[in-house]
Computed example of a mutant assay.
Amino acid sequence: MKRIAVLTSGGDAPGMNAAIRAVVRTGLHRGWDVFGVRLGYEGLISGKIVPLGARDVGGIIQRGGTILGSARSQEFKTEEGQIKAIRNLNEAGIDGLVIIGGNGSQTGSYALSKHGFPVVGIASTIDNDLFGSEITIGVDTALNIALEAIDRLKVTASSHQRAFLLEVMGRGCGYLALMSGLAGGAEMAVIPEIPVTPEQIADRLRKSYEKGKAHAIIVVAEGADYNADKLAAYFSEHRERLGFELRTTRLGYVQRGGNPGAFDRILASRLGAAATDALSKGEFGVLKGLVKGEIQSTPLEVVVNTKKQIDPNLFELAEILD
């Protein structure tokens, strides 16, 4: 192993730059030449492979997003596109590739691995829906952004005795909604894994009112059967019968754009170092993630074919603490 490359793919996550920095500097420490692939898999296909030195990654550990950029590539989903990408890597003399990203990104890692190219993945997505890591790069920062939003909404909700919907990201995973709701003391978290109806939500709000609460916060995952738009429309349509309506706030991409907190910077640094360590030992076709407090490897085949589950005990705890 003499020359390695690193790329970021999929949605940006706070801490990606810290992971890039760790890959570059630990690679250089091993005496390797290190390169960056610009614009993810699209850049891999178009040959956007550039050298990276220690100073190229200086001052980026605290920055959100990714200095390498990210872009979707339909061509890479085809076998022809994957072969083209490998050809570009071979022409650049790249011996191993580190791919930082979430579910879709690691599906791409697995595709390259099946073609025989040495790949190591790093778990990075604010959705926390990637099997092989209990928590992924970017999640902690995104949670704290959502938590700040809940705290701020509570001030207004309490002042005006209103009920608010806060929609958070997460695709088809309710982790962000559940955990931010739990940490923020929300009255309810609506997540894809445990479907609820608008009437059940209304019943919960009534019970909260009967307990003497002057306001209510419902955190909704964007991938829930009833997202914020559907719930707001339902409560508006049935306002006379239900006795109240819900005000909606959608965080959207605000959650992805924050500067990484300490946890994400440290996790990203550990995973980046673990990735180059794996390449040095000939451990390919794996994802590096955090499992039971330790950095561990999970075969990419297992990662892309296993759905990550929400802990139902956490949902039950959130309901008890309401």
Score class of each variant (00 low, 15 high):
I135H: 05
L39Q: 15
V50A: 01
T125A: 12
I61C: 12
G64H: 06
A142R: 02
Q62Y: 14
T78P: 04
G65Q: 12
L97N: 01
S70M: 14
A142T: 09
L112R: 05
V57T: 08
V120A: 04
E91R: 14
E91G: 00
I60N: 05
G65D: 12
V139P: 01
S113M: 04
I61E: 15
G104S: 12
R63D: 11
G58T: 07
G116S: 08
N128V: 07
G58V: 03
R87F: 01
I135R: 14
N90R: 14
Y41N: 04
V98E: 06
V50R: 13
E91N: 07
P51V: 08
R72T: 10
N144L: 09
R38M: 13
G96R: 05
E134R: 05
L97K: 03
L39E: 11
D140H: 15
E134N: 12
T66A: 09
D56T: 03
I45G: 01
T107S: 14
K77C: 02
G47W: 09
S70W: 02
S133D: 02
Q74F: 15
G101D: 08
Q82P: 05
G96I: 12
L143C: 12
K84W: 00
R87I: 00
H115S: 09
I126V: 15
V139Y: 15
S113G: 02
E80F: 06
L89A: 01
I61V: 15
R87T: 04
A111D: 09
K77F: 12
G101E: 06
I99G: 01
G64C: 13
H115W: 05
G65H: 11
D127P: 09
E75Y: 14
V57R: 03
L68R: 00
V98K: 03
H115V: 03
L89Y: 01
N90L: 11
G65Y: 11
G138C: 10
I45Q: 01
N88E: 02
P51L: 07
P51C: 04
E80K: 08
D140P: 05
I137R: 01
Q62A: 14
A92Q: 08
S124L: 04
T136S: 15
F117M: 06
G40K: 10
G59E: 07
F117Q: 03
N103R: 07
T78G: 06
I126N: 12
I86H: 03
E79T: 14
S113V: 06
S46E: 14
G53K: 07
S113I: 05
A123P: 04
T136N: 09
G81Q: 11
V120Y: 05
Q62H: 15
D129I: 00
G81C: 09
I45P: 02
H115N: 06
S73L: 15
K48S: 05
G53A: 05
Q74P: 00
I60Q: 06
G102D: 05
S133V: 04
L112M: 11
L143Q: 10
R72S: 05
K48C: 01
R72W: 15
E75I: 13
A71Y: 15
Q106L: 15
S105R: 00
I99P: 03
V57E: 03
N90P: 00
P51N: 08
G43Q: 09
I45L: 12
D95N: 13
